[in-house]
Amino acid sequence: MNNCQDYFVYMNQYLDGELPPQETEELLRHLEICEGCRRRFEALRRMVEETRALSADPPADLHAAIMAGVRRERAPRRGLIRLGGRTGRRALVRIGGLAACLVLLAALFDVASPWLGRTGGDDTASDEAAAPEAALFDAAPGEGAEASRSVQSYAQPAPDGAANGILAPESGDMTGDAATDGSAPGYDHAPLAVDGLEEAGPSAFYVVAVGTGDLSAVFGGDVPVEERTDRICVQIENTENARDEAEQALIEAGFTVCDNVEGLPEIDENAQTGLVIVYEDK
């Protein structure tokens, strides 16, 4: 050890209590004979002392703000799926749970239909108002027994003319929070029973969507499509806003996110993943 630069490193270690005894002796001996280093040492010591004396009193509401955020994170997600949410970091996508996806197609189709006008941000509500529900899918009632049965059984009690193909609210306003409210005019759907999802294991949330679009652009390249049906299930990691981001990504890709899906399995907010169920509108 023979230059002052090396001794400066020693000084730092010394002030941090990290200089071994032998080197400490060496440093102190050097300080005895080197005025430049003595000056530096004293300056460094004062500076470090002042740095360590820095303090910061957090705002009085910090604790409450932290805990409020944590509780929001912890709060059970409701089965009701909302549209919107802010766009942000794309959720890390994991694929799986295909076998467990047994949502009744027609039931979903019926629930989803009022939202057609909201895909891709286009307000095409007036066009959709005239479209029969069957136009959502090429599969006409009767083509799949399960599907047609569900359509009919669900269409029966649907009030407000939904079953008659009158899908658009009179206001025509299909955007914003009001449109996501199942109680908005024209959206008073009878409860929809969805089952068969329990086998997927606990999910932190469920997102149900229909439509046609490039799913690989939404969730990455390897989204598997269930061979015998047009359902696709994607498990996405349960991060903050993952659900909102998935919904937003689906909407941006031209899918319709369904609201008011009832009968979804219990939600476990601590689950590692949420489940996205997409019905392709071929």
Partner: peptide, 28 residues
């Protein structure tokens, strides 16, 4: 990056709290 050894004394005198506060702010 090399070390800068242009370290001189901080203007530190305990009885002059104002200066000390200034130094602390400068450190921050």
């Amino acid at each position: 990056e090399g070390l800068t050894l242009e370290v001189s004394d901080p203007r530190y005198q305990p009885e002059r709290e104002l200066e000390r506060a200034e130094l602390r702010q400068a450190v921050a």
